[in-house]
Amino acid sequence: MPFDPTFLILIVALAAMLFFTTNRSRKQQKAAAEFRENLRPGVEVMTQSGMVGVVVGVDDARQIIRLESSDGHVTDWVMAAVKEIPAQFATPVPEDSDDTDEARDSEDKDSGSTIEPGVIDVPDDLSGLDTAQQEYRDQQKRKDDDTDGK
């Protein structure tokens, strides 16, 4: 039985593919473990489920991290569920500009609002949704009435 070189090429290609995929995943696991080892309070992180928060406590013995969300709620997470926050989700660092800070502070005091500027206020319930839908329906009726008369 003659030797078939295509079988050898197939085996070498399969071994190379296996090596590169395991090597890449090993590097990713090493980087994630290194990131988790260096976690300290004040670091902004993201959980695997997508929650962004700031580390307020680390329990290395239990492998638990305590995170504070932007609304002030503190929750405990398993260390393996926390990863480095991608750049697009990180909180932007404000530029140090004295002129804009003073102007913004005076505007905030005059507005009387308890919501910080740039923060979108999302209601806890859907009660405002019915009003918005009703306004939309009324607007559509007015448009229909205008086009019927023409």
Rank of each mutant, 00 (worst) to 15 (best):
D101V: 13
A80H: 06
V54K: 13
L129A: 14
V45Q: 02
S127C: 03
Q29L: 08
E107P: 00
G57C: 01
P86M: 04
I115L: 11
Q88I: 01
G50Y: 04
T75Q: 07
E84Q: 14
A31E: 11
T22L: 12
E37W: 07
R137H: 09
A90R: 15
V78S: 11
E34A: 15
I115G: 07
E68W: 00
T22E: 09
L18D: 11
D99G: 06
S106C: 01
T47A: 12
E68P: 01
D101Y: 02
F19C: 05
K109R: 11
A132L: 15
Q140L: 07
A103V: 10
E84A: 14
S106H: 05
V43M: 15
N23P: 01
S97E: 08
R62A: 13
L129S: 09
E107A: 14
D125A: 06
Q29G: 03
D105A: 15
S25I: 03
E68Q: 14
K109V: 04
P117W: 08
T114Q: 12
A103N: 09
V54Y: 07
Q28R: 07
G72S: 10
G42A: 09
P94G: 10
E102S: 08
H73T: 13
S25M: 02
D125G: 12
D60V: 09
N38D: 08
E116A: 13
Q48T: 13
T47E: 03
R66T: 09
A16I: 10
R24E: 06
L39S: 14
V43W: 02
S127N: 14
E107M: 15
N38K: 15
V58F: 05
L126E: 09
V78G: 06
P117I: 03
Q134I: 07
D59T: 05
A87H: 02
A81S: 14
S111D: 06
E34Y: 05
F20A: 11
A80P: 02
R36M: 05
M46A: 12
K83I: 05
F19Y: 14
F19M: 10
R40G: 01
E107D: 10
D96C: 02
S69E: 06
R104K: 05
V122I: 15
P41N: 15
Q133W: 12
I115W: 12
E107G: 01
A90F: 00
M79W: 02
S127P: 00
D105I: 04
K27D: 03
D101E: 10
E116K: 11
E102I: 03
S49E: 13
T47F: 02
M51L: 15
D124Y: 04
Q28P: 00
A15W: 05
T91V: 09
D124H: 06
S106F: 05
S70D: 08
V122D: 05
V93W: 00
T47Y: 01
M51N: 09
Q139S: 08
K83H: 06
M17K: 04
P117D: 03
A32Y: 01
D124L: 10
V52D: 00
S106W: 06
Q134A: 13
I64G: 01
